[in-house]
Design a binder for these strands. Structure first.
Lengths: 205, 205
DNA sequence: TTGTCGTTCAAACGATCGTTTGAGCATACG
DNA sequence: CGTATGCTCAAACGATCGTTTGAACGACAA
């Protein structure tokens, strides 16, 4: 039972963990509030409903992720000597840092779950709130890969996103070994992903 | 309401669709049996429990997928003139064909959902039942990419799998346009994925 | 002290869940 | 014919769900 922070913060932290473990439907408010050490009614009091709590869990993490991505992109984009690897790093590293924060590693399971739920409302939510981030990255990729048609580029960015999501979810054959620090493992993941994605994006060039 | 086939078949078909739409927890047996046009008790009569129904949904599709993958791999592996693209095609095409069958496009959402659930029992289930397939593909990839260390190879196969899963789930920016046939779209997807993955696997060579 | 406001609490609400039950039906075999 | 077998059916079971309620609490202002 978590006893640090305000009631709202305790709920959000417990929600992120439990949603990742049991899914949005599988996680009951009774279990959630018990883990958080708060009363059952606190969720509806502070968030209005379970559904709105889910949305808050998303917003809290995605706002931070996209802010970091945009800041990282701004540091490298538009320069005459920008390397493809720099843009990929700005795209990949914030996501992996998020997925390796203390309880943040669980958020990516939450996100993967949401991708799996995958109804149009989620697509609309992401597009409306964070679509401009993808547009900025796409524009920079297009600048550095002028030989690719717009359709080709969209395809390849999609595939990079898929590889990134997979690496974040931690489901693959590759697992962090116990004798490797989280930071080292993250750096290795960034390196592998960047090299793989850069080659994939440049394919046929 | 589906009225063709036996009760068991109707349940399996409806389950695949509804699990994909609502998730394993979110899909109720009452909705499921209503869609299938069978009695509520039929699930427990024919499958024993909801959980065993879920397992049957998995087995039915994964058995077919892995059989096709192994058959395709056997046609190209071990030859002196095998191309990396041939092995990738054997890995990718059966998955995409499965995901484009009439109701099969929904199965990949089911699978993506299961990946998101992502507890160790699923990992164990996949490893025990279909691990030998991945081992055969890995061996052939290793033969064609001798310059890669074992760890590098595992990483890259993981990333290829992520890109494939993403493409199958249909969540990316790329959506099939209404004026393109399913077959054409599948062939385009195979082509994009193969080119991207081949370049990624060969990176640094 | 009294009153107010934000918050927490135990308890209960109605709805829905997976599962079980036992009667009823059809077909096949003696 | 009788009856055994495989299956379907409506109905009910207990459990658990998200949500609501109204009382109680603590801090602070009048």
């Amino acid at each position: 039972m978590n006893r640090s922070g305000s009631t709202k913060e305790r709920i959000l932290a417990a929600a992120e963990t439990l949603f990742a473990q049991r899914g949005f439907d599988g996680a009951s408010l009774r279990q959630l509030t018990s883990d958080a050490g708060v009363n059952l009614a606190a969720v509806n009091y502070h968030f209005g409903s379970k559904e709105k709590l889910v949305e808050q869990v998303f917003r809290r993490r995605l706002d931070a992720l996209n802010a970091q991505r945009l800041a990282a992109l701004a540091r490298v984009a538009g320069q005459p000597d920008t390397r493809l690897e720099d843009v990929l790093d700005a795209f990949i590293r914030p996501a992996l840092e998020l997925s390796h924060e203390d309880s943040g590693s669980l958020f990516m399971r939450v996100l993967a779950r949401a991708f799996a739920e995958h109804d149009d409302s989620l697509r609309k939510f992401l597009s409306e709130n964070y679509g401009h981030v993808m547009r900025q990255f796409t524009a920079e990729f297009a600048r550095l890969l002028p030989q690719l048609s717009k359709e080709e580029l969209y395809w390849r960015i999609d595939l990079v996103t898929g590889a990134l999501t997979h690496a974040m979810s931690g489901f693959g054959m590759i697992q962090r070994k116990s004798d490797v620090s989280e930071r080292t493992h993250r750096e290795q993941t960034v390196a592998h992903l960047t090299r793989f994605a850069a080659a994939g994006l440049r394919a046929g060039a």
